[in-house]
Design a protein around this nucleic acid. Structure first.
Lengths: 123, 123
DNA sequence: TGTATGCGATACCGTTTGGTTACACAAATA
DNA sequence: TATTTGTGTAACCAAACGGTATCGCATACA
């Protein structure tokens, strides 16, 4: 079970993405994490190990319990890789979006975003 | 070789990420793509197939050649998934901000935060 | 027409993945 | 002290992965 271990490979598995989601709310010990899934506890333990190996979560030992905490800054690597291609899928609609943005700004000029909205972001 | 086939799994392989990079510059036929790698042509063919199956590239047949074109808008799925966690790694102030948001929510429960805070989620 | 090219498809192979059951063991609890 | 709880680990398994070599077959070209 030793191999290439990077963030891209770590988030490829849907169960691991769910674990990340869970832990983004609050740290949990391993059994608590496992309680949210159908699969066995050792299976989750392996996923946790993988996530730990690539730095997406850290373990804090506390007595016999091991609390897992999300370290989501490692996702920045994925973000940067993806974002370099954003221009390939936003370009066409940029004009429209700009128009909509300005419309919104005119209507509600007071609304502060405070969220680094990452400008273009279409679904 | 049939299985789960989604964008996350597709970009997990470094060779496939390189193929995406190549094709983001211009469409190329399959042999041209394969020419950029050490591995054999059938191996690249398989990668191309996987990328096609999850919509990251499209094939345009032209005589006996098959031109591969990147359809990077499919990366939006990855982008959206990652970006929902951005607040966990961008600025340290974000934690404070989240805290303040929740405080505000408690004080004025009517004010919608638009941040899906999602406390607990145990089953 | 004969030959070279571009590529799919198949068969095969070793390794990795994601899962299981079973056991071991320290820490917490009764 | 006896027992429950939280977890690691080992052994095992089927399937998927990433690769290869090879054959076949249109299409293009000499």
């Amino acid at each position: 079970m030793e191999a290439r271990r990077d963030v891209f490979q770590a988030i490829a598995d849907p169960t691991r993405r769910e674990i990340i989601s869970l832990l983004s709310f609050q740290p949990m010990n391993l059994n608590a994490v496992a309680g949210n899934f159908e699969v066995s506890r050792p299976a989750i333990s392996k996923h946790i190990k993988i996530l730990t190996e690539c730095g997406l979560i850290t373990i804090r030992q506390e007595g016999r319990e091991r609390f897992c905490e999300a370290r989501l800054d490692k996702l920045n690597e994925v973000s940067e890789w993806v974002e370099q291609y954003r221009k390939f899928w936003t370009e066409k609609l940029d004009a429209l979006e700009l128009y909509l943005d300005e419309l919104q700004t005119q209507n509600k000029p007071k609304q502060k975003t405070k969220k680094h909205v990452n400008k273009k972001r279409r679904s």
